[in-house]
Design a protein around this nucleic acid. Structure first.
Lengths: 250, 250
DNA sequence: CGCGTTCTTGACTGCTTTCAAAGATGGTGG
DNA sequence: CCACCATCTTTGAAAGCAGTCAAGAACGCG
């Protein structure tokens, strides 16, 4: 494995996330590992799915960060939702499905085909994990709407960071209060509906207030309780099962 | 039928919308009509689904307008998505599903249980319509994010009106360029992520510019081409089938 | 070490909010 | 049929959050 390659395609994050969504049989984990042997690699800023094109089969993100994005004629961009390791894209089951918004890579990324689940008879765990994954995605979309519609810059960032920590935690990518932050402030701005200049100022203000510590591509949430009360944060939940953990490692 | 009752529960709008999403067999239409015989009525501002509660079976909106909403501790509200006649809510198939955001009625409304579709063997049309309905809802969520993140007040209203016209058109509720507008400017503000004061000013500006005509609970889009170029509007599409029409009646 | 990208900072503009109050509207009961 | 009341709409003035434009500093990569 080349020393320079930032994201060696491993399936572990995806297995961790899907197993956190629903218990997987060993055979189902094996299906995932087998699928991950045929990864597709995307350099940064590459189109993964194109709006209006057929969805194709579902894929799993093995490594790297991506997003769904809407671009306006005059160049304005809005990132609609982040796509993180273990996320499944293209989970629509209707006929002639076409993708509603393009997906692009925000870092180098690798995907693989998601193992097909029939009517869920032989792979009940995977099928359930896919269904919950889709429900989680919908919950993130809803929260993103509330965030953009009613929160100011400080609150948007706080809320988004807490959600991000939960999401990365599901995939086992959180260490204590820290997780990787490979995005430029330009990308953050496109996520948060702000300008990069204002994101910069707000991040610095939050640093000064001792809320966060962002250095060298790592984000550390210093004062999570204060971040949470700032926006009344509550983690997304899509089922009444015990809140699926795998939270931050320590 | 009482003269005063604003929304006599008819199933026609719902049948129109679902049949526009996928061809329905006569037997499937009969299932819908039968289900509509057991409507539940909700006065304005009544809770239809409560966040965190079990989803229960799927329901169809027969008449009236509703929404999913997020309310913050300090009273800020954001309407996440409108729910219109023919829309199906509670379409999650995973175990122990709980609703991610409360649904409330914005006008008097009536719902009925959605006919259950098994594995889609006996009701392939309905099953397909449900799947596409869910995909449409996701497309509306994505567009709502782009709207709140990157459009100014004029553009948000234009974009939202055009989407609303398409959605109501699917249910056969558009007459030419006009459709009912039963929402208060306060509700519009909660949809658009603005204040009601600013919604008022912006609507009046659009009236003066000859873009819209809003009077007596009816919205007329006077200059649709100009509205469309204002935001680069393109209708939501979730399948490569011929764009499902039932567009505006004339 | 040099170059391009990203981050940072300042000054200024402006869209949107806030606060307040007046005007319109519609439904109800006398 | 009209007075009355609650709700909704409209308007004004002032303040604030975020955007724009521009330029310099820091960073990372080759």
């Amino acid at each position: 494995m080349k020393p320079g390659s930032a994201t060696a395609p491993t399936v572990e994050a995806a297995v961790t996330r899907l197993a956190a969504l629903a218990p997987l049989a060993d055979s189902e984990v094996e299906l995932l590992r087998a699928a991950a042997k045929l990864p597709r690699h995307f350099p940064v800023h590459r189109e993964i799915q194109l709006e209006g094109q057929p969805v194709g089969g579902p894929s799993i993100i093995l490594s790297g960060w991506a997003c769904r994005v809407q671009i306006f004629r005059d160049g304005r961009r809005q990132i609609l939702i982040l796509l993180l390791p273990g996320d499944v894209i293209g989970l629509c089951s209707h006929r002639s499905a076409i993708t509603a918004a393009s997906a692009i890579s925000l870092t180098d990324a690798s995907l693989c085909p998601a193992p097909v689940v029939g009517s869920g008879l032989e792979t009940p765990g995977l099928a359930e994990a896919y269904r919950r994954s889709r429900a989680m995605e919908e919950a993130y979309l809803l929260r993103q709407i509330a965030r953009l519609g009613r929160l100011n810059a400080h609150e948007r960032i706080a809320d988004w960071l807490l959600e991000l920590r939960d999401r990365l935690g599901l995939a086992g990518m959180v260490n204590g209060d820290s997780f990787p932050m490979p995005l430029t402030q330009e990308a953050l701005a496109d996520i948060l509906g702000l300008t990069s200049v204002h994101v910069n100022r707000t991040l610095q203000s939050m640093r000064r207030e001792g809320l966060i510590d962002l250095r060298g591509g790592t984000m550390r949430l210093i004062d999570i309780p204060r971040l949470e009360t700032l926006v009344g944060y509550r983690p997304a939940r899509v089922s009444s099962d015990a809140p699926n953990g795998a939270g931050p490692n320590d």
